[in-house]
Design a protein around this nucleic acid. Structure first.
Lengths: 163, 163
DNA sequence: TATTTTATTGTTATAGTATAACGGAACAAT
DNA sequence: ATTGTTCCGTTATACTATAACAATAAAATA
């Protein structure tokens, strides 16, 4: 399980994270002849405002401020598009959405979610996934999609909390 | 990943599954000095009516028929109790609940969920879980709870669907 | 047994998450 | 220019879950 541990680095340059995510989204959509419309781009940017998963309804006010319609379907459509393109992931345990740090390859990694600060890191879990698929296939079950979500305590919170 | 594959056996004696689940629940609650009240027992029985995860609201009509109050809090309280005691699990991807085939030991196995017939099997995934925890700890992350859910196609549906 | 305490359930209201359905606008492709 | 398609605005509603408080039942203690 390799990892995008940058979210656990408290003082990283987050503007860079955002810029990179937007750049990648633009080129990916271009390559696929898809339209990264203003709404979609804004929603992606909003999701990337932190490394904490955000609920769909938390994004609506900012959409309104930006002058867009801000009814639920607007944000859900954008999120659906971004999910289909692998630009954001949905965290089922939280009903929340988070930017994908390495879009492009189809995957749905493993999320390490801190119960204290809510930060979530997407870790590559190909080993574990392979193991699971393999064991499932022994039961005659064909794996199509995996969701691995881990709740716990991140290194930063562990230090401060002694918990 | 060992498994309770009985759910994939189309013609198994399901009454036996139910009876066993209820027996285990009774003795487990007795051992823990907890009250398996009529509502809790009925909810457990309803969850066990099949090997398909059921939504909370799907249980309400049967509660009403049995003469109980059937407002949402009633069923959620029972489900909460049953979850705390490890008698049922919640499938986050489906917002649905399923009976646990081997309560008693604290765990939250891996669920293989068939997209076609909706049957879900709880498989022991201790190997994969250990791997994930171990890799997470390399990132300084302390695992407290894991959720592994797999969507795919079960052996029965694979046969009939050619899909 | 009477009393007190605790756990459980009833009840009403509401919060939070997500989608259906349809019309209109913008864009792309002839 | 016209047509077809995609995207967005809008309204309404479905689905999932919990807050808050009153009433009841069970357990513990006196």
């Amino acid at each position: 399980m390799g990892a995008e541990t940058i979210a656990f680095e408290t003082h990283h340059d987050h503007d860079h994270c955002i810029a990179r995510a937007l750049d990648e989204a633009r080129s990916l959509c271009k390559a696929r002849s898809l339209r990264l419309t203003p709404i979609r781009e804004l929603v992606l940017k909003l999701v990337w405002q932190s490394h904490k998963p955000l609920g769909a309804y938390e994004l609506l006010p900012a959409l309104a401020e930006a002058g867009f319609n801000s009814a639920p379907p607007t944000v859900y459509r954008a999120l659906d598009f971004l999910q289909e393109q692998g630009l954001v992931h949905r965290i089922a345990l939280l009903n929340a959405y988070i930017g994908c740090p390495h879009p492009g390859d189809a995957h749905h990694g493993c999320f390490l979610i801190c119960r204290h600060c809510n930060t979530a890191v997407e870790a590559d879990s190909s080993e574990a996934e392979a193991l699971i698929s393999q064991q499932a296939s022994k039961l005659g079950f064909t794996t199509e999609q995996q969701s691995i979500e881990v709740l716990g305590c991140c290194p930063n919170c562990r230090e401060s909390d002694t918990a």
